[in-house]
Measured scan of single mutants.
Amino acid sequence: QCIKQELICKWIDPEQLSNPKKSCNKTFSTMHELVTHVSVEHVGGP
């Protein structure tokens, strides 16, 4: 049986000017979605 898990993006953008810096905190249900999000939204490139 599949256990529902919540994956949370903890990326902190080093360019943020606010202190304390905020992490992204978007939630995902699969590791694939999380990896895709980080690749596209934070790292950039294909």
Score class of each variant (00 low, 15 high):
E41C: 11
G44Y: 05
C24H: 02
C2G: 14
H37D: 04
I8R: 14
D13E: 07
T30V: 04
Q16D: 10
E41T: 11
P20K: 07
Q1W: 05
D13L: 08
S18Q: 05
E15C: 08
S39F: 02
V38L: 08
I8S: 11
F28Y: 02
F28T: 03
Q16R: 04
E41A: 10
G45V: 07
V35D: 15
K4E: 12
I12D: 10
E33R: 02
V35R: 14
E33C: 01
S39K: 13
F28N: 00
Q16L: 12
E41N: 10
E6L: 00
P14K: 01
C2V: 15
T27F: 13
L34I: 01
S18L: 08
I3R: 03
E41G: 06
G44M: 05
P20Q: 06
S18K: 14
T36E: 10
P46W: 02
K22G: 09
I8Q: 13
G45S: 07
P46K: 15
D13M: 03
T36N: 07
K22P: 09
G45W: 03
Q5N: 11
M31R: 14
K22Y: 05
I12C: 11
P14N: 09
K10E: 13
V38K: 15
S29Y: 01
P20D: 12
M31T: 11
H42Y: 00
T27Y: 01
S23V: 13
E33H: 04
E6T: 02
L17I: 12
N19E: 11
G45Y: 03
E15P: 04
T30F: 06
W11T: 04
P14R: 07
N19C: 00
K22A: 08
E6I: 00
L7M: 14
E41R: 05
Q5L: 02
I8V: 12
Q16C: 10
I12E: 13
L7V: 12
G45L: 08
E15D: 06
H37A: 02
H37P: 01
K10R: 11
L34H: 03
Q1K: 04
W11I: 07
E15G: 08
I12V: 11
V38R: 15
K4P: 07
H37Q: 00
K10H: 14
M31W: 03
T36R: 11
K22V: 11
L7P: 14
K4I: 02
E33D: 12
F28M: 02
F28V: 02
K10I: 04
V40F: 03
L17K: 10
N19V: 11
L17C: 06
M31F: 04
C9F: 00
K22C: 05
C2K: 14
T30D: 10
T36G: 10
C2F: 08
I8L: 10
E15W: 07
V40R: 08
K10Y: 13
Q5A: 10
L7N: 14
L34G: 03
S29A: 09
N25E: 06
T27A: 09
I8N: 15
L17F: 13
L34R: 02
C24V: 01
C9H: 00
H37C: 00
E33W: 00
L17P: 13
V38C: 10
Q5Y: 03
I12Q: 08
P46T: 02
T36A: 08
C24P: 01
C9L: 01
H32D: 12
T27I: 15
Q5T: 07
K10Q: 14
Q16V: 06
S23E: 11
T36H: 06
I3G: 05
S29Q: 13
Q1D: 14
F28H: 00
L7A: 12
N25R: 14
D13W: 06
D13H: 07
Q5P: 11
K10W: 06
T30C: 00
E6C: 03
V35H: 15
I3N: 03
E33M: 01
V38A: 08
N19L: 08
M31K: 15
V38F: 12
K4D: 14
Q1P: 00
N25Q: 13
L7G: 04
K21P: 11
K10A: 07
P20Y: 03
K4R: 03
S39P: 02
W11E: 13
K4M: 09
C9R: 01
K21I: 08
W11K: 14
S29I: 05
S23C: 11
V40Q: 12
V38S: 14
P46S: 09
E33S: 04
C9M: 01
C24S: 01
V43L: 06
E41Q: 12
E15Q: 04
G45R: 09
I12Y: 08
T30Q: 08
N25H: 14
V43G: 14
T30G: 08
P14V: 05
C24E: 04
N19S: 09
G44R: 12
N25T: 12
T30Y: 00
K22L: 09
I12T: 11
Q5K: 12
V38P: 04
V38G: 09
I12M: 09
